[in-house]
Design a protein around this nucleic acid. Structure first.
Length: 375
RNA sequence: GAGCUCGUAGCUCAGUCGGUUAGAGCGCUAGGUUGUGGCCCUAGAGGCCGUGGGUUCAAUUCCCAUCGGGCUCC
């Protein structure tokens, strides 16, 4: 599935491709999040033609609760339902149970939780999460895991990791013993856990490698730990992951986080940041971040970045976009969401070009500084 | 013309049986958001409590006058 094309000579950055039946993905890549079968505020056409998204995310937890598996079956899977013919990755919902559901209980069998929508009771097991993702028909499905909070004791992180490992074996078995429903291949990624403990992270990396998943995710990071720890453990994990499998750092991050992740050998990222922050008025640009709500833009009748190809940057003035945000106009959210995603995908295009001509190592530290500035 | 009622932050309003630095929501000024709830969270600025007198150790609070808004009656 994954083909390594080139490695940066002085960093761990990798150029590669990831092949699916819905298209070939060039890595490193950022994957826009479309939890409920839509990247909020962005049309599928815009995603494909303007943003140039190569793969998007859906979420098992959310889609299972609404519209549910019956509707999804009737629709012929998520691709057909949402009319997106590119690759889709679905997260299993382990993280959502951890972050959204007030009442949840874990035992050997699986995760038992109450819906955040209506309080109804449900259970996810390593097996039924595979089954649900067969119905969704995603190109890449994720295992059910437990994402422990930060900070967690070594004891808790170890027990949690071991449970995730037992679930991983069951999930893999369920995957290998079932078939796709819609005539295209599906892949399954394992998820490394281990909290913020070196020995556990190494153990988990080795364990997931041994299960021979099609790709491996680094989970349990970007859950509130200091950023240095996130980098440190990403770096550690990739040292123990196979070269011939894609590495996916879940839930990350800021534009600077992406560059630092690539430098540590990560191929895939997803994060709500470009879209959620867009809705709250944060605009990411190559010169740093802008809060469009700030009063300084009220009468700034100029473009944010005339050279950048997004309507927010080079078609409308800052004063206009500011005005839209001040009035909670839907179009402001749309403009910012489309822009931020286009920017993230643009950044990954630059990253790939830099790895390809082997100038990534000298380029990215300066770029990180630039991206972290505030405008 | 008479009676009643209200006047406190930019807006809508609490409050004080007279007693430390007068509050809320919204708005405003900023910050946050990392395997998605346009939710939300945090901090800050902003008031001689309509005006002028009086009583009192002490008045946004009680009394008088006055200005302004609203309602009712003749």
């Amino acid at each position: 599935m994954y083909t390594l094309k080139k490695t940066s000579t002085t960093t761990k950055a990798r150029l590669g491709t990831l092949e699916t039946d819905h298209g070939i993905i060039e890595t490193p890549i950022f994957m826009p999040v479309g939890t409920l079968g839509t990247v909020k505020g962005v049309s599928q056409k815009t995603l494909k033609e303007h943003i140039k998204a190569q793969i998007i995310l859906g979420n098992t937890y959310h889609l299972y609760l609404r519209p549910g598996t019956e509707i999804m079956k009737e629709a012929g899977g998520l691709h057909s339902f949402m009319k997106w013919d590119g690759p889709i990755l679905t997260d299993s919902g382990g993280y959502q149970i951890f972050s959204l559901s007030d009442i949840r209980e874990l035992d050997e069998e699986g995760a038992h939780f109450q819906s955040h929508i209506d309080g109804s009771k449900h259970s996810f097991t390593p097996e039924n999460v595979v089954e649900i993702q067969r119905i969704l028909g995603s190109d890449i499905m994720m295992l059910l895991d437990e994402c422990p909070p930060y900070p967690s004791s070594h004891d808790y992180a170890k027990k949690s990791m071991e449970l995730t490992h037992r679930w991983a074996k069951r999930g893999r078995k369920a995957f290998l013993e079932s078939e796709p429903l819609y005539g295209h291949k599906q892949a399954q990624f394992g998820i490394v856990q281990g909290g913020t403990y070196k020995d556990l992270r190494i153990e988990s990396s080795k364990f997931m490698t041994d299960q021979d998943f099609e790709g491996i995710a680094i989970g349990g990071l970007s859950v509130g730990e200091p950023i240095e720890l996130m980098y440190e453990f990403t770096d550690l994990n990739t040292d123990y992951l196979p070269k011939d499998k894609a590495r996916y750092l879940m839930g990350v991050g800021t534009p600077a986080n992406l560059l630092e992740g690539v430098a540590r050998g990560v191929d895939m990222f997803d994060c709500v940041m470009p879209t959620r922050n867009a809705r709250n008025g944060t605009i990411f640009t190559r010169n740093g971040r802008v809060n469009i709500r700030n009063a300084q833009w009220k009468n700034h009748h100029e473009f944010l970045d005339e050279e950048f190809d997004s309507d927010l940057c080079s078609k409308y003035t800052m004063a206009y976009v500011h005005h839209l945000f001040r009035n909670n106009e839907i179009y402001g959210l749309v403009l910012a969401s489309v822009h931020n995603l286009r920017f993230y995908l643009w950044l990954m295009e630059k990253v790939r070009a830099r790895i390809d001509n082997d100038t990534f190592a000298e380029w990215y530290p300066g770029m990180v500084k630039q991206l972290e500035q505030r405008i």
